[in-house]
Computed example of a mutant assay.
Amino acid sequence: MNLFCFMISLFFLVISIIFVRKRSLEFKWGLLWILVSLILMIFSIDSRIVEYLAKATGIMYAPAFLFFMGIVFNLIMIFYLMIVISSMQKKLTKLIQENSILKDRVEER
Rank of each mutant, 00 (worst) to 15 (best):
V50S: 04
L25Y: 03
I78K: 11
Y52D: 03
E98G: 10
S9Y: 03
V84Q: 15
Y61Q: 03
F79Q: 13
F12Q: 00
A54R: 10
I39R: 01
T57K: 06
F11L: 13
L35Y: 08
L3D: 05
L13K: 02
V84H: 15
R21F: 07
L81T: 12
M69E: 07
I71T: 14
L25D: 03
T93M: 14
D46F: 02
L102E: 01
F12K: 02
W29Q: 01
G58Q: 12
S86L: 15
K90L: 15
I78C: 13
E51A: 07
L13F: 04
L95R: 12
M82Y: 12
K91A: 15
A56M: 08
S44G: 06
E107L: 04
E26C: 05
K28E: 10
F68E: 14
S9I: 02
M77G: 13
S86A: 15
I85P: 07
K103Q: 11
R109V: 03
V20D: 00
K90V: 12
E107W: 05
I39S: 05
E51H: 03
L31G: 08
V36R: 00
F4P: 00
I85T: 12
F79W: 14
S9Q: 01
Y80S: 10
S44D: 00
V50N: 03
V106K: 13
S37Y: 00
